[in-house]
Design a protein around this nucleic acid. Structure first.
Lengths: 208, 208
DNA sequence: AAATCCAGAGAACAGTTGTTAACTGGATGA
DNA sequence: TCATCCAGTTAACAACTGTTCTCTGGATTT
């Protein structure tokens, strides 16, 4: 299926990726709405006008970043929620997975947390759509669980959203704690685990 | 205690407030990190240099906005969490109160949601501190409840943070739904109520 | 009444921004 | 091989930015 790109297409994609990478780097200390097109091209080492060969505008680049940050995460979500062991182990595994992802892609996580409510509407919309997809997928996985017997579709979706939001909160906490001591990071793990556990307990007694 | 201000001090405070109001208005369509000092003074109708009589910089103004948006909210939080009726009524009351606050101060709510993870560190810090204060206060109120018997201090605080984050998520949902139909807004109420209920159920069975 | 203060105005600065148009030169396809 | 394409360049534009220094005139204090 994958067609080998010509020299020209390959070089173009390389520049495009460099623009995305540079933007992501610059966004560690500012918001997308203050990111300048010249700033990005300067960081890459390319002429300002070259930007237009790849993106219509900065918001357009932002939407591409959303896709890069969240698009490839869907399979990961599904397998994480699925894992059918006892729920205590499952929680620990999920937290660990979040921590690992934050460590591996801190800039991506920061970007999503920052721009989810940021000043650029097309980007907010793109993030909202991706998170809604996550929630749908989590809902589908939850539905397979025998503990979901008797649950309405609406209630499954509200629980799924609760889980998704909680994942984001946890990821953001890990991000803030990245420069902290191992002790502080362990506290984050503890708090996040207990919050997840409390939600799971609520889920278990929902139909009482 | 309150000393009547002289004409000069009064006029100065008026200009300062006008700067804060104008900034808050401009921030509905962008982030603080892209807000310009000249942009703000232009909106107020004063010379750019007048800005420096009130704030050292834009981040400084942002910190003042955090105080304005959250500083006066502490008593409200306490009384809301306190209300000692049955928990179903309490949840409905809390949701209603959040909805009312979002309707009354949408720009403040948007600002907090946007800048909590925004690109300006001093502002992020100020918001984090205020939310941590909220969590402490919620913890204190929860501790008074007989349902909290046997709870550790740490667990009370983690539950308080869960509640505070949930309030913010709910507020943000109401904000997004402001332009929507009454039906959509009602759906937000339903989902938020159920999420709060699920957390309360988890709380109730925490010590099992 | 006179001296002091100080919020705001005005002008000027060096740098920055997004966008346009016309170009170059190597990859591409006939 | 030769004509076409197109990613990236160069130059120029009007508009904008934060910050400095100097000045003004009404409120405040003595």
């Amino acid at each position: 299926m994958s067609h080998t790109l010509g020299i020209r297409q390959a070089q173009k994609q390389k520049t495009r990726q460099a623009l995305l990478d540079a933007a992501l780097g610059l966004l560690e200390e500012q918001s997308l709405s203050s990111l300048g097109l010249r700033e990005v091209t300067r960081a890459v080492g390319v002429a300002p006008t070259a930007f237009y060969r790849h993106f219509r505008s900065i918001p357009d680049l932002g939407v591409a970043l959303v896709e890069e940050a969240l698009g490839s995460l869907h399979p990961m979500i599904r397998t994480t929620v699925t894992a059918a062991d006892n729920s205590e182990e499952r929680i620990a595994r999920a937290i660990e997975l979040i921590a690992g992802h934050v460590d591996a892609f801190p800039a991506h996580v920061r970007f999503i947390a920052r721009e989810r409510h940021g000043g650029v509407q097309p980007v907010r919309d793109a993030i909202r759509d991706q998170l809604a997809r996550f929630a749908e997928e989590v809902k589908d996985e939850l539905a397979k669980d025998r503990e979901s017997a008797g649950w309405s579709e609406d209630d499954l979706l509200m629980l799924a959203h609760l889980y998704v939001d909680q994942m984001l909160i946890t990821a953001s906490l890990f991000l803030e704690a990245m420069e902290d001591t191992e002790e502080d990071r362990e506290r984050v793990v503890q708090v996040a685990s207990r919050q997840m556990r409390l939600i799971s307990i609520g889920r278990h007694h929902w139909l009482d």
